[in-house]
């Protein structure tokens, strides 16, 4: 227990440049992940996000092997995955099996490439479980640029995206380009996933991309309120998880995932109690 929770020397740690970089990265990631999360939940895309994350891992592993930036590889892998999933299926049933097949293949390929890689072991492990010590100023700039881009696209396309995500039949009839939007959204998800992979790791991307939205959907049905809550939850999980992980020096992903999970359970319990109070 002592190893899990410690705040010794936290003050000094927080003063370090790379720690501050990491916290800023987490905060930026929280905004974009939280903003997308309710739409991901509305579209029933949890599994697609997982698949996208695994392919970001594959892309990162490939980049490591050929010696280009891991971040670049992750973005390439995730965006390609997003596009493939977006093109292949609007029908959820078909989409799920396609994702399952592609995900397994990508993961296998990634593991193979990591084994062939002979560089630093922490690079290897980082892709799967995340690590925040690796965020440098250049990464931070990339992160900020992508975040601004994602938020800008979301601001312009928000209403039709919401329409297409929640009520596709009527949206099509009202002239919303549902298919094209599903591609655009898949690319947005791919970009944000790729940014999240180096920080929380490919395995645990769902804890920042899904959990905040799923938790918010438990306590509100208003799309706007759900978005605000999801952003707040994503920030708590990411920034809080990062701070908690500092002193013990353990992987950030475990803390982030645990916080996200607690928030989700808390929301379920809250909704339960409120439902009971409403009946009584």
């Amino acid at each position: 227990m002592d190893r899990l929770f410690g705040f010794e020397g936290l003050g000094e740690l927080l003063a370090l440049g790379f720690v501050q970089n990491a916290l800023i990265a987490c905060a930026v990631l929280g905004v974009v992940a939280g903003a997308l999360a309710p739409l991901i939940v509305s579209r029933g895309m949890a599994f697609a996000v997982h698949g996208t994350a695994e392919l970001a891992f594959t892309g990162g592993a490939a980049a490591l092997l050929i010696g280009v930036g891991v971040g670049l590889g992750a973005v390439a892998g995730a965006v390609v995955a997003g596009l493939v999933f977006g093109i292949l299926g609007l029908r959820q049933r078909e989409r799920d099996s396609v994702i399952g097949v592609v995900l397994a293949f990508g993961l296998g390929l990634g593991v193979l490439m990591l084994s062939l890689y002979s560089g630093r072991a922490s690079n290897r492990f980082g892709l799967l479980t995340g690590s925040i010590v690796s965020v440098d100023s250049a990464d931070l700039i990339v992160l900020a640029v992508v975040a601004v881009l994602v938020i800008a696209v979301l601001a312009v396309l928000y209403r039709p995206l919401l329409f297409a995500s929640t009520d596709p039949d009527v949206a099509v009839a009202r002239g919303v380009p549902v298919r094209a939007l599903s591609l655009v959204f898949a690319v947005l998800v791919g970009l944000v996933t790729a940014l999240a992979v180096p920080i929380v790791g490919a395995i645990l991307v769902l804890s920042v991309m899904i959990a905040p939205g799923a938790a918010a959907a438990r306590v509100t049905a208003s799309p706007l309120v759900a978005t605000v809550i999801a952003v707040a939850f994503a920030e708590i999980a990411l920034v809080g998880g990062a701070i908690l992980s500092l002193a013990p020096g353990l992987p950030v992903s475990g803390y982030v995932a645990a916080l996200a999970f607690l928030l989700y359970v808390g929301c379920r319990v809250f909704a339960r109690l409120r439902g009971r109070a409403a009946v009584a």
Partner: peptide
């Protein structure tokens, strides 16, 4: 929200 989308869900912006 469902009713509102019928009014302007096809428009750009928030």
């Amino acid at each position: 929200d469902l009713v509102g989308l019928g009014l302007d869900g096809h428009r750009l912006g928030v």
